[in-house]
């Protein structure tokens, strides 16, 4: 990943259904500021929605950090979702389409990875999960 200079990051708690909506709204407003195309905005917000819900449902709640980033020529939006939940024991499996440990469709992780330009995941059983996504203007 290119070194991106971070500007002010906004932090939101992810503890309830209403928080997921707030994360979506924040990501959308920053995506508009970063001048992402409408499709890229929609993809990024959808990915953020999936990941925020994962944080809430599987991670037992956590935090979202959203910020505008710039690597010189382009601007973009980066969002980080972190929880101190049970973690993901088998990451490869979790990134497979259709696999789910809960009652979802199993598209949250694998699907949101396809929606963004940058996707990084860091997880350890018993410690928690941290997912970072980013999309830049074209």
């Amino acid at each position: 990943m290119t070194a991106a200079t971070s500007e002010t990051a906004e932090r939101l708690p992810v503890r309830a259904d209403s928080d997921v909506v707030k994360v979506r709204q924040l990501v959308r407003s920053l995506a508009q500021q970063a001048r992402l195309s409408l499709v890229d905005q929609t993809k990024l917000v959808t990915a953020a929605s999936e990941l925020a819900r994962n944080t809430l449902v599987y991670g037992g709640g956590g935090e979202a950090e959203v910020e505008l980033v710039s690597d010189g020529a382009r601007t973009g939006v980066r969002a980080v979702f972190s929880d101190e939940g049970p973690g993901i024991p088998d990451l490869d499996l979790a990134l497979t389409d259709g696999w789910t440990s809960g009652s979802g469709l199993g598209l949250g992780l694998s699907g949101s990875r396809r929606l963004v330009q940058h996707f990084a995941i860091d997880t350890a059983p018993g410690v928690g999960t941290r997912v970072e996504i980013a999309t830049w203007s074209r």
Partner: peptide, 14 residues
């Protein structure tokens, strides 16, 4: 359904 939403859903695999 809006076009951008439809494109995203297809990409998501939904």
């Amino acid at each position: 359904m809006r076009p951008a939403v439809a494109i995203t859903m297809v990409e998501l695999g939904l």
